[in-house]
Each structure stands twice: as structure tokens, then as C-alpha cells.
């Protein structure tokens, strides 16, 4: 399965490019889906340790607001993206030092609480953040070239692809490394880790910072694609959305988050178009279907089909 994964990733990427060319209006949706997939990859790392964060949209919001604040003075995508990741990573480190002392419901709720603190700050400090109106992101450049019209959309789509591929590779290597396997050990036998001389908290902290970096990158891509940021990016429903996508995509493989994100965005777009008033119900039904019939998520279904194909 692990050997088939890069080929699946390539096939998936090729399919996304084909769709983006064939249906230009979907390019925007797919860019956002890739960005969310990156953030969900961070959620997946924490899920490996048995921890669920209901506040990771906070790091996406940090990434997005860094882009909004910095764009007027240094509006290059190649500068803004690392800057947003750095900011989210540093905040992730500071919060992580404290939050990795906690597990399970306390871990989940503390993340949620902190994300809501950020939401309130973004909402209330109107003079700086323009409150719930949000901030319009200034025109951007890439490597010094101005971005406008369809070119901007393509640049952001390509940026999302490259960043997604980079983090996919990082997560794939990381999860089978001693650190990644120790992370999975937190879920089953944290005591043993300590008695092997390994700091479980340190192991979780590395994953937490990595997940914050990923969410920061996702937020930056979202801000540069939509060109508008609001406090809603940090709202708890945005964090819930990331967990929703993680379950939908499946936590068993690092492609799961991207499969989940694309599925989620497509269901959302088509459900909203078909049943404007009850589109959330379609998402709910999709999640219910996954939980009842495909607990491994979209990735689990694909992995199962591949395994069966190999056996027969």
C-alpha cells in the first residue's frame, strides 16, 4: 500500500489539473480544498497520537492574517507563505509547550478555547483587524511579477499543489520515522515511552508545531486565494470543519486529508447549488455514511479496493 501511495498521489494530482483546466470555475474550489487538506494533514498527525484538536483553525487564521497584514509591504507569495508558516509555527510552539501537558478531552477543549480567544481578539480589535468586516488582501506578486486575473488563480492553484506535495512528503517520511512511530505510541502506551527514556511531551510537541506550520500554510493559501480574511477563519466551526474532513478522508494514510478535503468541497458546492437551504444536511449525511459504512474514510475505501485488487 505504501508503495502504491506515490502513484495514487500522482494520479490524484493529475486528475486535479485536468479538472482545473476543463472546469476553470472549479480551480478556486480545488485550491481551497488543497489548502484545507494541508491543514487536515496537521490534524492527522495529532490523531496518530490519539489527540483531536478542535482549535486548529486558529493557526490557519494566524497564517491568513499574517498575509493580510504583510501583503501591502511585502506582497510576494514566496515571502508571505514562509512568513505565515513561521508565525503559526512560533505561536504553535509557545502554545504547544503548555498544551502538550494535556490529553484527550482537555487537549481538545484547550485548543478550542484558545482558538476562540483569538477569534474574539480578531473581532474586537477593530482598529487593527477591522473586526468582522475583515481585511482585504492587497494585490500580490510572485517572484516579483504582478499576479492578476486567471494567472493569479493558476499561481495559487500551483502554489497549493506544491505546498501540499511538500507536506505530504514530509508527513509520509515523518510518520514512519522513530519520532512518528513514537507519536503513535502515545496513543497506545505513553507510560512505556517514558520508561524508554523518551519524552512523550516532546514527541507530541514536535507534531503539534508541525501541525501548526501546516495550518499556517493552509491559512496563507486561503487568504491569498480568497483575497479577504475575517475572524471566521478562527471560529470553532472552522476547526470542526478540519476534524470533519479528517474523518471523511480517513486517518489511515497521508493522502486521506486531501481526498477528504476535495470530497468535502465538492459535496458542499454541489449540495449548496442543488438544495440551497439544506446543504449542510448533505454534508451530515455524507459523514454519517462514512462513520457507519466506511470508518476508514475515503482513503480506507480506496486502500480496501487496492488490497482486494492485489489479492484477486
Amino acid at each position: 500500500m505504501r508503495r502504491a501511495e506515490p502513484w495514487l498521489a500522482l494520479a490524484g494530482a493529475a486528475a486535479l489539473v485536468v479538472v482545473a483546466v476543463a472546469a476553470p470555475w472549479l480551480r478556486f474550489i480545488l485550491t481551497l480544498a488543497l489548502a484545507k487538506g494541508i491543514a487536515v494533514l496537521g490534524i492527522l498527525l495529532l490523531l496518530r497520537a490519539g489527540q483531536v484538536s478542535f482549535g486548529h483553525a486558529m493557526y490557519a487564521a494566524i497564517g491568513a492574517y499574517v498575509v493580510a497584514f504583510a501583503a501591502p509591504s511585502m506582497g510576494d507569495v514566496l515571502v508571505l507563505l514562509p512568513l505565515a508558516m513561521l508565525a503559526a509555527g512560533v505561536v504553535g510552539l509557545v502554545i504547544g509547550v503548555f498544551i502538550t501537558r494535556y490529553r484527550e478531552i482537555f487537549f481538545s477543549m484547550l485548543n478550542l478555547a484558545l482558538s476562540m480567544v483569538l477569534y474574539s481578539l480578531l473581532e474586537k480589535f477593530y482598529a487593527i483587524t477591522k473586526g468582522s468586516d475583515g481585511i482585504r488582501v492587497a494585490p500580490l506578486r510572485i517572484a516579483g511579477m504582478a499576479m492578476d486575473g486567471p494567472m493569479a488563480a493558476w499561481v495559487m492553484f500551483a502554489t497549493a499543489m506544491v505546498v501540499a506535495a511538500m507536506f505530504w512528503w514530509v508527513a509520509r517520511r515523518y510518520l514512519v520515522s522513530p519520532m512518528g512511530e513514537a507519536l503513535a505510541g502515545i496513543k497506545t502506551r505513553e507510560t512505556r515511552l517514558e520508561f524508554m527514556g523518551v519524552s512523550a511531551r516532546g514527541v507530541l510537541l514536535v507534531a503539534y508545531v508541525l501541525s501548526a506550520l501546516m495550518a499556517g500554510a493552509a491559512g496563507a493559501i486561503i487568504a491569498m486565494t480568497t483575497r479577504h480574511v475575517t475572524p471566521l477563519l478562527a471560529y470553532w466551526t472552522s476547526s470542526g470543519e478540519l476534524v470533519f474532513i479528517a474523518i471523511l478522508g480517513g486517518a489511515g494514510g497521508v493522502l486521506g486529508p486531501f481526498l477528504g478535503a476535495v470530497t468535502y468541497e465538492l459535496i458542499r458546492v454541489y449540495a449548496a447549488a442543488a438544495f440551497a437551504d439544506i446543504w449542510q444536511m448533505a454534508l451530515g449525511l455524507a459523514l454519517l455514511g462514512v462513520i457507519l459504512f466506511a470508518p476508514g474514510g475515503v482513503w480506507g475505501v480506496i486502500a480496501g479496493l487496492l488490497r482486494r485488487a492485489r489479492v484477486t
Binding site: 514512519v176 520515522s177 519520532m179 512511530e181 513514537a182 524508554m196
Partner: peptide
């Protein structure tokens, strides 16, 4: 994997990119 993880713990677990 259990045994390998214990061995890695002795050698130094802080390797994010080398496979266990």
C-alpha cells in the same frame, strides 16, 4: 516495531526523516 522503537529510543528517537 516494538523492539525497534525501544532500540531507537536508546540510539536517539529525534530523527524525523530516517525510517524507524
Amino acid at each position: 516495531q516494538n523492539a525497534a522503537l525501544a532500540i531507537a529510543a536508546r540510539r536517539g528517537v529525534w530523527q524525523p526523516f530516517a525510517p524507524l
